[in-house]
């Protein structure tokens, strides 16, 4: 096992801090990774994304286990499956509070605000018997991310892919804001569904 370069550590720190300060994580939630060739750099199990150090970033093969697997995020299997099955080069998983609220009562989330509609359009919500790190999740999550940038695990949080971690973080952030708006509309006694863009509902 070897430490990653300082420029990469700084990049992880920037994304991790942004996700924390934006309220997309609790103190110890979430994980993130980026693909480099046939390896990945992934955050350490139990690390605080808002306060990462160089020893919190683990380099590991996309296919074979080495000693790094003992330190890497417990959802490494999902990350590997996503890199194997989708177009993503980076992954950010976050525990979005409002997205989780909506996931408990919906099978999909359709942003009604302009930014959300433009950026993520329609987000699938998927339910699992075991809500973290299961084989079922390794099979199902990549299937949804083949054609969506972000999806929500019911009652758990969101997982997004991108060419970069910043892109994947952005989709998490946009989704959470869109969910806040939907929750806000509903709390005013209106139906957010009435504001759904027509073409997305029918064409996506």
């Amino acid at each position: 096992m070897k430490k990653v370069s300082p420029s990469i550590v700084q990049y992880f720190q920037k994304i991790g801090w942004a996700s924390y300060i934006a309220g997309l994580q609790d103190t110890h939630s979430g994980n993130m990774s980026m693909r480099i060739g046939n390896r990945m750099l992934i955050t350490r199990r139990g690390s605080m994304l808002g306060f990462l150090n160089d020893y919190d970033i683990i380099e590991i093969s996309l296919e074979k286990n080495d000693s790094g697997v003992s330190l890497a995020s417990s959802e490494i299997g999902i990350h590997r499956a996503i890199y194997r099955e989708t177009n993503g080069l980076a992954i950010v998983h976050a525990h979005l509070i409002n997205a989780v609220v909506l996931s408990l009562i919906n099978d999909e989330i359709v942003p009604v605000d302009v930014e959300g509609s433009y950026t993520i359009r329609k987000v699938p919500v998927v339910s699992f018997e075991y809500g973290s790190g299961s084989r079922e999740m390794e099979e199902e999550i990549p299937r949804h991310l083949k054609d969506n940038k972000i999806m929500v695990i019911k009652g758990h949080g969101a997982i997004a892919i991108g060419e970069t971690m910043e892109e994947a973080l952005f989709y998490n952030s946009v989704l959470e804001n869109s969910c806040k708006i939907i929750v806000g509309i509903n709390s005013l006694g209106k139906k957010a569904d009435d504001f759904k863009p027509k073409n997305i509902s029918e064409g996506w």
């Binding site: 370069s5 420029s7 990469i8 693909r35 480099i36 177009n87 970069t164 910043e166 892109e167």
Partner: peptide, 29 residues
């Protein structure tokens, strides 16, 4: 496209690690 225009998000142009991966994926797309 990403290193200058930031589409879809900006990537540090000076970074060398990860660029081989990014370029190969973008060539495919």
């Amino acid at each position: 496209g990403s290193e200058i225009l930031g589409l879809p998000r900006r990537v540090d142009p000076a970074l060398q690690i990860s660029k081989g991966t990014l370029v190969a994926k973008r060539q495919n797309d």
